[in-house]
Design a binder for these strands. Sequence first.
RNA 1: UCAGUUGUGCAGAUGGUCGCUGUGCAUUUGUGAUGAAUGCAGAGAGGAAAGUCCGAGCAUCAAAAGAACAGGGUGCUAGUUAACGGCUAGUGGAGGCGACUCUAAGGAUAGUGCAACAGAAAUAGACUGCCCGAAAGGGUGAUGGUGGAAAGGUAGGGUAAGAGCCUACCGGACGGUUGGUGACAAUCGUUGCUCUGUAAACCCCACUCGAUGCAAGAUUAAGUUUGAGCAAAUGUGUGUUCUUUCUCGCUCAACAAAAGUAUCGCUUGAACUUGUUGGCGACAGCAAGUCUGGAUAGAUGACCAUCAAAUACAGAACUCGGCUUACAACACAACUGACAAA
RNA 2: GCAGAGAUGUCCGAGUGGUUUAAGGUGCAGCCCUGGAAAGGCUGUGUGCAAGAAAUUGCACCAAGAGUUCAAAUCUCUUUCUCUGCG
Length: 110
Amino acid sequence: MEHRLRKNNQFNYIYKKGEKTHTDNLTLFAVKSKYESYKIGFSISKKLGKAHERNLLKRRMREISRKFVSIPSFCNFVVLAKENAPKLDFVELKEEMIKLFEKYENKKHS
RNA sequence: UCAGUUGUGCAGAUGGUCGCUGUGCAUUUGUGAUGAAUGCAGAGAGGAAAGUCCGAGCAUCAAAAGAACAGGGUGCUAGUUAACGGCUAGUGGAGGCGACUCUAAGGAUAGUGCAACAGAAAUAGACUGCCCGAAAGGGUGAUGGUGGAAAGGUAGGGUAAGAGCCUACCGGACGGUUGGUGACAAUCGUUGCUCUGUAAACCCCACUCGAUGCAAGAUUAAGUUUGAGCAAAUGUGUGUUCUUUCUCGCUCAACAAAAGUAUCGCUUGAACUUGUUGGCGACAGCAAGUCUGGAUAGAUGACCAUCAAAUACAGAACUCGGCUUACAACACAACUGACAAA
RNA sequence: GCAGAGAUGUCCGAGUGGUUUAAGGUGCAGCCCUGGAAAGGCUGUGUGCAAGAAAUUGCACCAAGAGUUCAAAUCUCUUUCUCUGCG
């Protein structure tokens, strides 16, 4: 099943309508959808580093979202990296992502 | 052994678990159309992929040929190449004990401009001074120490004082001879010698260049569509002007299917590897073999084990040839100098 | 990805080869004016290093590094950073 966001329109829609959740190095935009699945996209600005650094960060985030984090269905997400995100190593990034989604879940239930 | 010069290679490997993007085959399934899913096989970033500094292919500017002007680029010679501002081999110059390195290196006698301050004076007239002379006047470029630059330089002779006035050496200019494809070199002669610097100032000379970049552009769908503005053939046209053949009204907006979308462009190429022939070399010829990324929010990651350690710079976006810049550790070859020993 | 523009003192910004020229404004400090303030007027004011008791003087710096020139913020090359446009 495809979990990637592919269209520029979808990104723009989520930025506009999305519900924001912050941690120190990441920001989550979330929007509800009608499909029984989730889609997730990663946004890393050109200001954060050189091309290979940005690629590495995105690959790690995708790996973590696939393996280590339970992501709720019926939703679309965009994860936006902040300034210091490329400096994190894999383990730190993993903890950050888990924290981010826990925070989002708590917000939703409360 | 120490210090150094030049060039080259490599850019983690192997095994396991999970995962990503194309390609081929098979099965299942779907759309108006391109398709989608599963399985198997096989492929999947660099030496700089970077900077975008040059040169090409390719595409569009309706289609061509030519001339002049404007503007840009290059600048020792010969070669090499599809082409180049690259590369190779040399020449001159600069640096180093040396191996070797660096060099935007045409023209200042085609013309124009600029040269602050200092200095008597900036390309050259005057002033100061020296000498001859009673004076009038004449001789002089040696005195003036400032400047980046001051009337070729040094030494000797010479003179009233001086001066290429004379001589020697060095430098310059002009001409010849020899060698070299050539840049140029060597050598001989003539000439006492008027000659500041700057062309990365304008410029002159020689050679050379159309513009825009794959977000170029093409295809499917409607196009002899509708509306508005401008123009009136003496018009439009890829820097300007002109000649010849030609073409045609031009510009903007609206209407439309996921439409800033889909498909194509898109990867077999001046390709790579090995051998061989020619050439000092860059490179070229021939033979055999190989198929080696094609994404579009943008594909290589995470974890474990072993190797002493795994770590530098860094990620294709139409494709090639160069240049420039960044770069950890390791390995190899040739050569130079110093010291020691034989 | 492709194409283009720029960088000068705290900030804005002129200067496009010449010696005391880093204009001008803004900001800051002091003085005048006022009962007190604002506005206005006058004066001073970039950074670093060295010398000096002090006043002051000298040198360097116009994003960074090389080159051309007697002389560079200015001309040429390389690098860094910032900004803009493109179906």
